[in-house]
């Protein structure tokens, strides 16, 4: 018999908390929300630890968000037999991750570097802060953090409400329509939940609703406009670009000297975004220059008819059906034209 008020309160607490979260989970699932994973430093570090897999059985991808949307990992793995290790970080430069891999004597594998010029050649310290933080986290993560990650993974596998970006207490409070304070930097409407849910392999897949609903798509294109309008980055002058390319060259040479393979990829963009990128980062001054200076091969989407025609719903990332086609062709180009070897041949397995 429960004589203590603490015991009775404890039982009541258990009932209320269980009822609340069962109800909340059912409500979210009825709204069509699917499982998504917290794509923070723990998940990134988990993937970072996999780069030592044998070079003929794995490929590492670094870059920005386009890599995360455009590479369909299931397709890649089915076609090539290679494990795709996704280390791209959205909205950031891949250069700190490249430097980390270059400095790691044990990394000797295949590396695909996505070039989104606005981020890749950015001079803003903000665009290297998050990758640097993740690299530092990977190097310092404790046994306790690793174990917590494993438990968290099991919970995220089964619970929709575990979605820090969109369903945490702070994210829910952000939904309250409170007038903006004048002069404060704030995103116009935040990033919609349907745009970038992330799976455990760190692939972002737009939801069906996002692909169909132009209102939500406009919310994201509005974000791109906003970022462009508030960007205070100094324009990368030729000298700065040259010094960045020199550093990249050194890093790539270190990987190649150990037997690693490296390639640059320029993933598709479309509409006004692609037009703006052409104006801001003329191909000859950036893409061609980095290939020529580093002596590394590149795949530019505009050079291949099979992948040059995609229309990105929000001008910058592929929807999943296009990502599958893009990935199939990327794997074939790598094997046929660039001489990459995979566990399976993408041509024969297609």
């Amino acid at each position: 018999m429960l004589t203590s008020s603490f015991s009775r309160a404890g039982i009541l607490m258990l009932i209320i908390v269980l009822a609340f979260f069962v109800g909340w989970e059912i409500h979210l699932r009825n709204k069509g929300i699917k499982i998504a994973y917290d794509d923070g430093e723990s998940l990134w570090a988990d993937k970072r630890a996999m780069v030592y897999e044998a070079a003929d059985k794995a490929t590492v991808f670094i870059g920005s968000s386009r890599n995360k949307f455009d590479l369909d990992i299931a397709t890649w793995q089915k076609l090539t037999g290679d494990h795709a290790i996704q280390l791209a970080i959205e909205g950031n430069s891949p250069l700190p991750v490249l430097a980390d891999l270059a400095a790691d004597e044990n990394f000797k594998g295949k590396l695909v570097i996505d070039v989104t010029e606005g981020l890749f050649f950015s001079t803003s310290p903000k665009n290297i802060a998050e990758p640097s933080k993740r690299v530092a986290y990977y190097k310092k993560r404790t046994p306790a953090q690793r174990f917590s990650f494993l438990v968290n993974h099991q919970l995220e596998n089964g619970l929709v409400f575990l979605n820090k970006d969109h369903l945490s207490l702070n994210a829910l409070l952000e939904e309250i329509p409170i007038p903006r304070r004048k002069g404060v930097f704030a995103l116009p409407n935040g990033c919609p939940m349907d745009f970038n849910p992330c799976n455990f392999e760190r692939q972002c897949i737009m939801t069906d609703r996002f692909e169909k609903d132009t209102t939500i798509q406009k919310q994201v294109t509005g974000l791109w406009d906003f970022y462009r309008s508030v960007s205070k980055d100094p324009p990368a002058n030729a000298a700065k670009t040259d010094s960045m390319i020199a550093i990249i060259h050194k890093d790539i040479d270190k990987i190649k000297a150990r037997g690693g393979k490296v390639i640059f990829v320029r993933s598709p963009s479309s509409g006004p975004y692609w037009e703006g990128e052409q104006r801001g980062f003329p191909r000859a001054l950036y893409w061609e220059k980095i290939l020529a200076t580093t002596g590394v091969n590149g795949i530019h989407f505009k050079d291949y008819p099979a992948i040059d025609h995609f229309i990105c719903p929000e001008f910058s990332h592929l929807k999943q059906s296009d990502a599958i086609v893009y990935t199939q062709n990327l794997a074939k180009i790598l094997e046929q034209e660039k001489g990459w070897k995979f566990a399976k041949s993408p041509i024969t397995s297609n």
Binding site: A9, M13, S148, L172
Partner: peptide
């Protein structure tokens, strides 16, 4: 006891909803 139970529940619900760990 039921007031304590309600307060305790509120704390735990907010704790789990926070999704801030480690």
């Amino acid at each position: 006891w039921w007031v304590l139970g309600l307060i305790w529940s509120a704390m735990l619900i907010l704790l789990i909803l926070s999704q801030e760990s480690s």
